[in-house]
């Protein structure tokens, strides 16, 4: 096979050049610089004498505070992903299976509409809902269900609520594509063989939609752990996550080296997930590659 498809200079290959250049310039170069900065004692542009060091990483490992921040970031990412999946899957299934075109268009609009508004605006909207004097607390108190306002903002719960709202569309759109490609007749075949609709879903549709579940989850998790605006506004600096910490290190402490090391950690977490995703996908759908 490979002998017949040896690479031959192809005029069309030139068209890839602009994107290749852009990737090199704006993706690999910055990441390479960031990796370099994370092992230097200072910025070589402004400092005459810099040396290689591992002290930024040592600081992270040595101080439980930073480990706690990393763990908080991952925890928020995990919870956001799970909630987005729980909300997104039924919606995606509905969208993929709805017969009426108008119904499908309406659902799609409902999913996409929030994305037309900026993240900051949507997060402020959540603040008016979740704050101590916000809509939720006011309503519950006027109904006499609570006497003290619930602490909804400046908590991880508040951050998760905001993040889920922003990232559910990514989950839904990813899942809809995958579920839509599962032949409905497979579910019917299962029902015909005696499986209840729920059983047919669990035995057929769910396992066949695993690639979509994995892809959507990966996307939402990666976005959630790198989110900055929502954790700041809804967490109010009381909940520290990696992106906030990185920003502080750069803007307040001017410690670019440490910020770069934190950035690398964030990148490595994401990369490990992508690798795990590919492994898992290979396990659940290895046989389907034959089709």
């Amino acid at each position: 096979m490979s002998s017949t498809t040896t690479t031959r200079p192809n005029g069309l290959a030139l068209f890839i050049l602009p994107s290749a250049l852009m990737f090199a310039l704006f993706f690999f170069l910055p990441i390479g610089l960031m990796a370099l900065m994370s092992v230097l004692t200072g910025n070589p542009v402004v400092m005459p004498k810099v040396a290689f060091t591992t002290r930024h990483y040592a600081r992270m490992v040595g101080d439980p505070y930073y480990l706690e921040v990393i763990w908080t970031t991952i925890r928020i990412g995990l919870v956001t992903t799970l909630v987005a999946l729980a909300i997104g899957y039924p919606l995606a299934h509905w969208m993929a299976r709805i017969k009426s075109r108008a119904g499908h268009a309406l659902l799609l609009m409902a999913v996409l509409a929030p994305m037309l508004t900026g993240i900051v605006v949507r997060t402020f909207a959540w603040m008016t809902l979740l704050s101590d004097k916000g809509v939720v607390n006011q309503t519950l108190m006027s109904l006499g269900l609570i006497s003290q306002p619930l602490k909804l903002m400046y908590t991880e719960t508040g951050i998760v609520v905001g993040l889920v709202h922003i990232y559910v569309p990514f989950m839904v759109l990813t899942l809809t594509g995958v579920i839509g490609r599962i032949d409905e007749r497979l579910e019917q075949a299962a029902e015909n063989l005696g499986a209840s609709p729920l059983r047919a879903f669990l035995e057929v549709t769910l396992p066949l939609s695993l690639p979509g579940i994995l892809a959507g989850s990966l996307l939402v998790f990666a976005l959630a752990i790198s989110a900055y605006v929502t954790p700041i506004l809804l967490g109010g600096f009381q909940i520290m996550t990696l992106p906030i910490l990185i920003y502080q290190q750069i803007s307040a402490n001017f410690n670019v080296g440490f910020a770069a090391a934190l950035g690398i950690v964030l990148l490595v977490i994401s990369l490990m997930l992508v690798i795990a995703y590919n492994r898992a996908l290979g396990l659940v759908s290895g046989q389907r590659e034959l089709q």
Binding site: R185, Q188, E191
Partner: peptide, 20 residues
């Protein structure tokens, strides 16, 4: 009566075999 309680076998046009 719902499909799964009808006790009928069916061969689909595209066979609808479970690929997994």
């Amino acid at each position: 009566v719902p499909a799964h309680k009808r006790d009928m076998g069916m061969v689909f046009q595209n066979y609808a075999l479970f690929p997994h």
